[in-house]
């Protein structure tokens, strides 16, 4: 069953006379529970695509449907509610609130999400129960990224969007993060969308979308994706 549907979606940046199509008439669908990797060179439009899907931005043309809801024409408040309930975001730079502890950073989302999960459970899932009352600055980059995943998952979203989640990490830590994400997809049925430059990560994916110059170059379904441990960095 398809959870995400892009129909002829464009995102146009205008600067005076000049017009730049970061995304140019993109159409595709994604099925629920898939582990999706978006590949493409720098400036291809990967982040633009992910941001539109995540409701951080709205398309200039076309429609985006998520779980049967058209999100392309929502108001600011409706978009905020969509972000709170349906999608979780993980960034290359973890974006934790520096003045809140690990526990508080995760617990924070229960203020906005109706079906939030238990914060401690989430932290335990990423293996950081020992650090509940640490502040982000006291954690390593990988640990911070795990917390930011726990925070995103705590909202119990259907879709988890990750923009270069391992971009700032070494290979070992990167594998650990990927394992967690894979687990979320396989055992909890989350739809995971990862944007990356890294060809190797694509080997783990159920679906690989290649983007170039704002257009989709190819969509490949992989029958036998590798596990995180098998990925060579």
């Amino acid at each position: 069953m398809s959870i995400v549907q892009f129909e002829n979606v464009s995102r146009i940046y205008k600067s005076g006379e000049h017009e730049l199509r970061a995304l140019n008439g993109v159409s595709f669908t994604l099925d629920e529970g898939k582990f999706v990797v978006i590949l493409g060179p720098s400036g291809a439009g990967k982040s633009t695509l992910l941001n539109l899907l995540g409701g951080l931005d709205s398309p200039s043309e076309g429609t985006i449907t998520v779980s049967g809801m058209d999100i392309s024409k929502l108001s600011d408040n409706e978009l905020a509610d969509y972000r709170a309930s349906t999608v979780g975001f993980v960034f290359q730079f973890y974006n934790l609130i520096p003045t809140l502890t690990v526990y508080e950073n995760v617990k924070l989302v229960s203020e906005i999400s109706k079906n939030a999960l238990d914060a401690k459970d989430m932290i335990s899932k990423v293996g950081l129960l020992d650090h509940l009352s640490s502040f982000p600055s006291e954690l390593s980059g990988g640990e911070q990224q795990r917390i930011s995943i726990a925070r995103a998952l705590c909202k119990n979203p259907k879709i988890l969007l990750c923009d270069e989640p391992t971009g700032a990490l070494d290979s070992e830590t990167g594998v650990m993060i990927l394992k967690i994400l894979m687990d979320m997809s396989k055992n909890y049925g989350k739809t995971i969308v990862i944007v990356t430059h890294n060809q190797n990560i694509a080997k783990m994916a159920d679906v690989v979308i290649r983007v170039k110059n704002g257009k989709i170059k190819s969509i490949d379904n992989q029958e036998n994706p590798l596990s995180a441990d098998e990925v060579e960095w």
Binding site: N77, A80, Y82, A84, I97
Partner: peptide
């Protein structure tokens, strides 16, 4: 602004 943007991304409404 980065912090506030993070809160927004998480789904906090601007008003809040």
């Amino acid at each position: 602004s980065r912090e506030l943007a993070t809160l927004k991304v998480l789904g906090f409404r601007s008003k809040k």
